[in-house]
Design a protein around this nucleic acid. Structure first.
Lengths: 247, 247
DNA sequence: CGTGCCAGGTGCCAT
DNA sequence: ATGGCACTTGGCACG
């Protein structure tokens, strides 16, 4: 059977398709790109995602996200894949000069992907044990605290003297933009609450850039250096309690 | 020949390898993840990049970047791929329960990837024709203007009245953080230059969030809405001049 | 949908 | 290496 027919049937049956092909690629949409002839890996997934990889590098050189519409065209021996995203007028065209390999099948994968050790975990450790993580007793006021146009404060506490304490958490190096992110929240709360509320702000991260430290000082904000390992230890302790206590 | 030998030889010859396999995946490094059994696409590139795709979605579910070290282990019928990044102690383990498909070969791809229509192009259009893009005559002072701890200003102009004009360009919707990015630059220049320099600041983008507009007004900064198409037209005109004029 | 923000972000380029 | 920043960023949560 002609290759192009096999390809059509595979797509029709919503199989995952993998091609190794000498091809050229054109993209036009939010930006434009062109890639002349070379051998690449083309993945067409069951959900319409199309991903093209060169034989090197982590990132795909061209792609279209799930939901794209793939059509095939035979232009005098050259197979043309047109991948369309109608909503936003994006188009990728793959011109296949030579097909080195073809594979297609339906893949069975229902498993759940679990990930931990991200910023959310660090935040939880701080909420569960403020004293252990930040060195002082703090009472939780709220987290993912909505501040309207200013965004969301990671955590808001009240300290032993009744001050509001706004906390912004970074999982890795906190830079100057993190400082200004925090300052935005403080300004907003100060403005909303009037001058009678006393506010502190703490940037929490395992590391800080030099300019972040300078900006923190200039803006009168505090910071705490925390270790991710320490956070992990605290989470483990707290979470290993009977569910009666944790939930 | 045993599959594991074929795999070893392919890796030894630095071929690109593609596996379709029922497998489980474990990752431990900056974060940790676990993915139980399912059918996936595994790409091992010639430069040591390893990328695992599920049959849906744009992003790989697990990966290691180029330069990773891949070793193979036969654990009583289960092929174990250990992918290591020694420098930062990152490890991914793929346990292959069943190999549905194997492909390997050396891929030839020397082509250069060309992209345009990104932020850099928008910036160039503004530099080449400030009047056409921003509606006023401006004289270029510098671009990627280093401001020490405050970062880099996209473009700095001088206007007809001798004011410095700091320009921050966004290719898509400019949000409140873009406003503060620009404000950082202004504050820095003002501080360095003393109170005698008069500074204007313009945020340039095709779209602005509501809160960005509010923040701009509050901070006394200007903005210009520009069309990417217009920028493209200007670039085309200016660049089609003889190279004698453009270079 | 837009807005805000994290990501095992990655990649590029500067000092 | 660290730092500052864009990315066809993608992805999620929330109003």
């Amino acid at each position: 059977m002609a290759m192009i027919e096999k390809l059509r049937q595979a797509l029709y049956r919503k199989e995952t398709v993998i091609l190794i092909a000498k091809c050229s690629i054109f993209y036009e949409g939010r930006a434009s790109s062109k890639l002349s002839e070379g051998e690449r890996i083309i993945i067409i997934k069951e959900d319409g995602a199309v991903i093209v990889h060169r034989p090197f590098g982590y990132e795909p050189v061209n792609y279209q996200p799930p939901g794209s519409i793939v059509t095939i065209e035979d232009d005098r021996g050259i197979i043309k894949l047109n991948i369309l995203r109608p909503r936003i007028h994006e188009k990728m065209v793959i011109e296949i000069k030579e097909l080195k390999h073809f594979y297609s099948s339906r893949l069975e994968d229902q498993a759940e992907f679990q990930m931990w050790g991200d910023e959310e975990d660090l935040k939880q450790a701080i909420i569960l044990d403020p004293a252990g993580m930040l060195g002082e007793e703090l009472q939780l006021v709220g987290s993912e605290f909505s501040l309207g146009s200013a965004g969301y404060a990671d955590i808001v506490f009240r300290d032993i003297n009744g001050n509001l304490v706004v906390v912004e958490v970074k999982k890795k190096t906190a830079d100057v933009s993190a400082v200004y992110q925090l300052k935005r929240y403080v300004d907003k709360i100060r403005k909303e609450g009037g001058s009678n509320v006393s506010i502190r702000a703490i940037l929490v991260a395992p590391r800080f850039t030099q300019s972040a430290l300078v900006a923190l000082k200039r803006e009168g904000l505090e910071y705490r250096e925390v270790s991710l390992q320490h956070a992990r230890k605290i989470l483990k302790q707290k979470r290993s309690l009977p569910s009666f206590f944790t939930s």
